[in-house]
């Protein structure tokens, strides 16, 4: 899938790298986008990921990786501007709109995303998903939080612990 000898893009073409998900799907992306990941950035700086080699990511499945890359591609231009001090309000509003839409997804996908963002060290993505999770938790009781995030039903011990907690911190449950 990856073009051999693509190397360091003469002719001004952007350098591409290949990422391989845990289920062996290959993704070809611009190095600039993949470099939003601190982990990948080191490999790419060392010249990895080009040509036919590809960088294997055994912890990230293809569904999650494509979602992660969607984020990286969208955010790469702003990141390249060093946090985009000269970005227009329109650009920032567009990114914000994208971010809000991006995390409007099922909790199981959020879970895969925050794990992947953590493993790949993509700070912006981790922070974005964490904010979404925090928003989902706000104002909810422990049981409601568990239901929202698809926890299994609590064991009797867990239930007893939650009740004790509630007795101790009754004020937080008003």
């Amino acid at each position: 899938m990856a073009a051999p000898e693509s190397g360091d893009g003469n002719n001004g073409a952007a350098r591409m790298v290949t990422l391989i998900s845990s289920d062996n799907t290959r993704f070809e992306v611009e190095a600039a986008a993949a470099s939003l990941s601190q982990t990948l950035q080191l490999t790419i700086l060392d010249g990895g990921g080009g040509g036919g080699d590809g960088i294997p990511l055994p912890n990230v499945d293809s569904a999650t990786l494509s979602k992660v890359l969607e984020y990286c591609i969208k955010h790469a231009p702003a990141a390249a501007n060093g946090g985009a001090p000269n970005a227009t309000a329109v650009d920032r509003a567009e990114l914000e709109r994208f971010d809000n839409e991006f995390v409007n997804i099922d909790q199981s996908v959020l879970y895969s995303l925050i794990m992947a963002a953590h493993n790949l060290e993509i700070e912006g993505l981790q922070s974005l998903v964490a904010k979404k999770v925090a928003d989902m938790i706000k104002g909810k009781s422990p049981m409601e939080i568990r239901r929202t995030l698809g926890f299994p039903d609590p064991t009797p011990e867990e239930q007893a612990e939650m009740n004790a907690h509630m007795l101790e911190y009754g004020w937080a449950y008003e």
């Binding site: 981790q126 922070s127 964490a130 904010k131 999770v133 925090a134 938790i137 706000k138 104002g139 909810k140 009781s141 422990p142 939080i145 568990r146 926890f151 867990e158 612990e161 939650m162 907690h165 509630m166 911190y169 004020w171 937080a172 449950y173």
Partner: peptide, 20 residues
């Protein structure tokens, strides 16, 4: 990272009851 996003301490206490 999630807990540092919970600015109110009521949310903090309730979320801390979820599991060990």
């Amino acid at each position: 990272v999630v807990f540092r996003r919970l600015l109110s301490f009521g949310d903090h206490v309730r979320a801390s009851a979820v599991c060990p």
